[in-house]
């Protein structure tokens, strides 16, 4: 049997999530004694196979077509479905990213299979896989079983460790007929700046209503610069119009799990925690000793963020030389 991983690329660059998913695929394939196969689809993407090899796949199937230049659901769904039908794997893994979230359910419905989304852990117990997925925005954790022959899962970004490994790494061509897409991509708008993407960032600095005004985010930006971090926001700050909704972290925003999450002027409402509670280390800066964020944080500083954050930036600069 095999495990199939869908390698996500956009604009000819592999996404970090891809390496995380392949790494987990490799671990599971090793445990289950399966082979690991990676499907790499796009236009002129053969060159990316080299990067994938490092993570130990047994096979990399490459599909090149100008019809795959942009990600479109229908064309990609057709390619992945055909590959799965050909390989008949026990498990198909994708990232729980914008593309993975869009693609996995469509393919699942086409195959009539079972899909567990947004997994934070997958276990193989010798006979079967079990899938761990947070529900109710992380207020509970559920274990799922899938009873279809092909089981499909998407993996939460930034949770699974990237691990290089050995593998045969045969590169083969895969040339299915590619379905036309009924949607066309007219424009791709990249967010300004060269900050890391929120869901992929190792460090996130977030601001909330406690900033008091939109200019407060200048200070958060400076802190983020000092750490190479992404900038997030609470809903209150988004609703006030201080920050774009793309930056919102929480139950109705992004779910993130960076190594370090610094919350400045954020009270730590349950809906905000839902989005960042799985961060490895949380720092809270708040002037209210009763603020929930100070209870939740690994390290809390009670104080005015307008005094603490500049001092922190200075200190970081000093330490980093």
């Amino acid at each position: 049997m095999s495990i199939v991983v869908f390698a996500e690329q956009r604009g000819g660059a592999l996404r970090k999530i891809t390496f995380e998913v392949i790494s987990e695929g490799k671990r599971l394939a090793t445990a289950a004694g399966d082979s690991l196969k990676v499907l790499l689809a796009g236009d002129n993407v053969s060159g990316l196979a080299e990067e994938l090899k490092k993570f130990g796949p047994d096979e990399i199937a490459v599909v090149n077509s100008d019809k795959l230049a942009d990600y479109t659901t229908e064309s990609y769904a057709g390619v992945l479905t055909d590959y799965v039908k050909q390989e008949n794997p026990s498990l198909v893994l994708l990232g729980h990213s914008a593309i993975g979230k869009d693609l996995a359910p469509r393919v699942t419905a086409r195959l009539g299979a079972g899909l567990v989304s947004d997994c934070i852990e997958i276990n193989y117990d010798g006979g079967d896989f079990s899938f761990i997925h947070p529900i109710y925005a992380g207020k509970a954790v559920a274990t799922y079983k899938v009873n279809s022959a092909v089981k499909i899962a998407t993996l939460r970004p930034n949770i699974f460790a990237m691990e290089e490994a050995e593998g045969a790494a045969n590169v083969v061509d895969f040339a299915p007929e590619i379905a036309a897409s009924r949607t066309t991509v007219k424009e791709v708008i990249q967010q300004a700046g060269d900050r890391p993407e929120l869901t992929e960032a190792d460090i996130i600095c977030s601001g909330g209503r406690g900033l008091g005004n939109p200019e407060g985010f200048d200070l958060i930006e400076q802190l983020a610069d000092a750490l190479g971090a992404a900038v997030g926001s609470s809903r209150a700050a988004v609703d006030a119009g201080w920050r774009d909704h793309q930056a919102q972290v929480g139950q109705t925003g992004k779910v993130v799990s960076p190594n370090l999450y610094i919350a400045c002027g954020i009270s730590g409402a349950i809906q905000h925690l839902a989005g960042m509670g799985s961060s490895k280390c949380i720092v809270g800066i708040n002037k209210d000793p009763e603020a929930n964020i100070l209870t939740v944080a690994d390290f809390g500083i009670e104080g005015d963020l307008y005094k603490v954050v500049p001092a922190l930036i200075e200190k970081l600069k000093e330490v980093n030389g």
Binding site: G112, K139, A140, A142, N147, S148, G277, V296, D298
Partner: peptide
């Protein structure tokens, strides 16, 4: 095709400082 076999509360974060 999928079954939620068990749900549990997430492990509590250890108290911070």
């Amino acid at each position: 095709k999928t079954e939620l076999v068990a749900a549990e509360l997430p492990p509590a974060r250890k108290a911070g400082r």
